[in-house]
Design a protein around this nucleic acid. Structure first.
Length: 674
DNA sequence: TACCTCATCTTC
DNA sequence: AAGATGAGGTAG
């Protein structure tokens, strides 16, 4: 037994500086609370106490990286705070060393990371990993440069086209907090506008963070910003570790005051942040792929709130989430007047399946670029104007449904949607494929009704209209079949209606009372499909020169679809309202706060049994997720969102502390619910 | 009695 | 999660 412990002395001898037995604690506040950087089970997400040796006293400031022995192994960690006393005096160990005196975790980012971890039911260590890049010693050794002087307040003529634009800039120039949701006019030079806003705030001596979806946007906004002021830094994911850390340090050390970057920049430690910007918040690039999957917009909302900074949510289109910020009074909107819009909007033509031109044009059905669009493109090229062609994804076909009960057909491996690779729902028998994982399904068996529908004449699988009820009244089903027959073989463009026929499912009233009742199975939906389509269209059409002499936009989609109307009329606000009321009706985020809990049936049910939900809490499901996994949805009102996160966290903690075997995965307000 | 396996417990 | 400890079985 004693022999195992002797391993300690070996490592001390190896470090060769001070014999551990001779260490003594710092004179004051000798207890460090440390967040260790190891993947820990959820119930261990709290700081561990370490003794600070006297020789580390000066360097051991809150926010520095430290090296500690945890579970017998050397690991990295962040020193969160120093205190006098510890509750675990019998087990406490000494900090091995302070990695460097650089304070990399500022109080602001620490608080933000804690809040994000709580909101998304994740561990602090996981969030810190997103917030603070890995250390690069050479970059750290370089001397800090002097901070750039604040620029002069820039001219911002471009903002006069928007009704509250000038007032907004005045507010920022006077250092007032001013949140806003801004819809850029089509053709807007939005990087220049964002640069003007950033320089206005920088002129007051405050810091700015601008988060954009990808590196191309980083480059554009960076160029626009550097044209107006010094002290701008770009942070992309594709920088090497050394360069990345160097730039990040220039922000930390106050050399740079304006940060332009992709989602990693959300946590950039700018000194005294005055303005936080997210461009095109509907772009899926803003959703973090790593646990606990925070979303840039939501993190910036939180950060603005905590830091007293202003938030700007900007895009051509508008998301339901941004609409909610407007509706709740959190952020006033900045939009152009109708006249300004008329002058700026490009000519948009919609050609649907039922449009005469396309219906007659057999080739246009199969080609991905219909003839009329082709002609427009040829004319434009002849006139020396650029052409952008955006086409539906290659091989795009509707998802499939069980021919018996019409529930969406799921991949048995990953629960993704099944579709036919060839592009038609009849014709040569080709096996269905999963659109997510690519698995081939030869013997479809329905997850809902359990039947393998008869092969041969009756198809087992048929085109699925998203949002249709599992069982429709006979008349509706007959109607659907006719419609399917008519549209057979046609390639459907991206915008799809949420409800094919009939009334939208009524929103269930959020329950009041104690024990949550389990409701029926939630049906798979993609509430963001139309929003995503409009966003892509508007972002593309936003590049088109307006006016009669300008460019043309051809959309090969049914002109009666609300999404298409929103594009033709260029009315993102109307569409966002529509989208938000749809989600409100369904009881989906952002109208409510929702958590998904995935795992094997027993595990999911164990967590659900442990859940102590607040008054508005509801449990939906669980539903099968393929591979003997299940998913439950849990929702509460937005007001009780924090309580929901706490309740889920408690339930998961109980489970991991008990060492129950099967893991569960929790996601808060996921982008795609199925 | 030396040496396995499996379950349970702790992590500052 | 993963290493440490302990109970209990078993080959020899």
């Amino acid at each position: 037994m004693g022999g195992v412990r002797s391993g300690r002395h070996h490592s001390v001898a190896a470090s060769g500086i001070v014999r551990r037995g001779e260490r003594h604690p710092a004179a004051t506040a000798a207890v460090a609370r440390v967040s260790v950087d190891v993947p820990l089970p959820y119930h261990l997400d709290f700081p561990f106490d370490y003794r600070i040796p006297a020789e580390c006293d000066a360097d051991a400031k809150p926010g520095v990286r430290v090296r500690v022995r945890f579970r017998g192994k050397l690991t990295d960690g962040f020193l969160l705070e120093r205190v006098e006393h510890t509750e675990v005096a019998d087990k406490i160990k000494y900090i091995e060393r302070v990695v460097s005196p650089e304070v990399v975790l500022t109080p602001e980012i620490h608080g933000l990371a804690r809040a994000v971890a709580d909101r998304y039911v994740g561990s602090l260590a996981n969030v810190l990993r997103l917030a603070i890049p890995p250390r690069h010693a050479r970059a750290e050794a370089r001397e800090a440069e002097d901070p750039a002087p604040p620029p002069a307040r820039p001219e911002a003529e471009g903002w006069q086209r928007y009704t509250r634009g000038p007032a907004y800039l005045d507010a920022l120039a006077n250092g007032r907090s001013a949140n806003a949701v801004w819809q850029a006019l089509p053709g807007e030079d939005w990087p220049a506008r964002l640069a003007e806003v950033a320089a206005t705030v920088a002129s007051t001596g405050k810091g700015v963070v601008i988060v954009v979806p990808d590196y191309r946007d980083v480059n554009r906004v960076f160029a626009a910003c550097t044209a107006l002021m010094p002290g701008v830094v770009a942070l992309q994911a594709d920088l090497g570790p050394g360069e990345r850390y160097k730039r990040w340090l220039s922000i930390l050390r106050g050399t740079a005051r304006v940060v332009v970057g992709t989602k990693a920049a959300t946590f950039a430690p700018v000194a005294d942040p005055g303005l936080l910007v997210v461009w095109d918040d509907g772009d899926s690039g803003h959703a973090e792929q790593l646990a606990p999957y925070p979303h840039v917009r939501d993190v910036l909302v939180q950060r603005a709130h905590m830091a007293g900074a202003s938030l700007l949510v900007a895009a051509f289109a508008r998301t339901a989430e941004a609409q909610l910020l407007v509706d709740t009074g959190w952020a006033p909107e900045i939009v152009a007047s109708r006249e300004q819009l008329r002058a700026a909007a490009p000519r948009v033509t919609a050609i649907g399946e039922t449009d005469a031109q396309l219906a007659r044009d057999e080739a246009a059905r199969t080609a991905r670029l219909p003839a009329i669009a082709f002609e427009a493109a040829r004319d434009a090229l002849k006139a020396g104007r650029p052409v952008l062609v955006q086409v539906p994804r290659r091989g795009y076909v509707p998802a499939l449904a069980c021919a018996n009960c019409r529930v969406r057909a799921q991949c048995r491996r990953c629960a993704g949607p099944l579709s036919l690779p060839g592009g038609s729902t009849d014709g040569a028998p080709r096996p269905a494929e999963c659109r997510w994982c690519g698995a081939v399904e030869v013997m479809f068996r329905c997850t809902a009704c359990g039947l393998t529908p008869p092969a041969g004449r009756g198809r087992r699988l048929q085109a699925h209209r998203r949002g249709t009820r599992p069982r429709l009244p006979r008349r509706s089903r007959a109607h659907l079949r006719r419609r399917r027959g008519a549209g057979r073989g046609a390639r459907r463009p991206r915008p799809r209606r949420l409800h094919a026929r009939g009334r939208a499912p009524r929103r269930r009233r959020l329950r009041r009372g104690a024990a949550p009742r389990r409701l029926g199975h939630p049906r798979p939906r993609r509430p963001r499909a139309t929003e995503e389509a409009l966003r892509l269209w508007m972002t593309a059409a936003g590049m088109v020169v307006p006016g009669p002499q300008g460019g043309r936009v051809i959309v090969t989609a049914e002109s009666s679809l609300p999404t298409v109307q929103a594009l033709v009329r260029w009315d993102p606000v109307w569409h966002a309202n529509l989208e938000l009321s749809g989600r409100t009706e369904l009881g989906f985020p952002p109208a409510v706060r929702m958590a998904t809990i995935d795992g094997v049936a027993d595990a999911v049910n164990a967590v659900l049994d442990e859940l102590r939900l607040p008054a508005t809490g509801e449990i939906l499901g669980p539903v099968p997720l393929g591979e003997d996994k299940e998913r439950a949805l849990v929702r509460t009102s937005r007001a009780e969102g924090r309580a929901l996160a706490e309740a889920v966290a408690d339930a998961v903690r109980v489970r991991t502390a008990r060492k129950d075997p099967d893991p569960v995965r929790v996601r808060m307000d996921p982008l795609e619910l199925l």
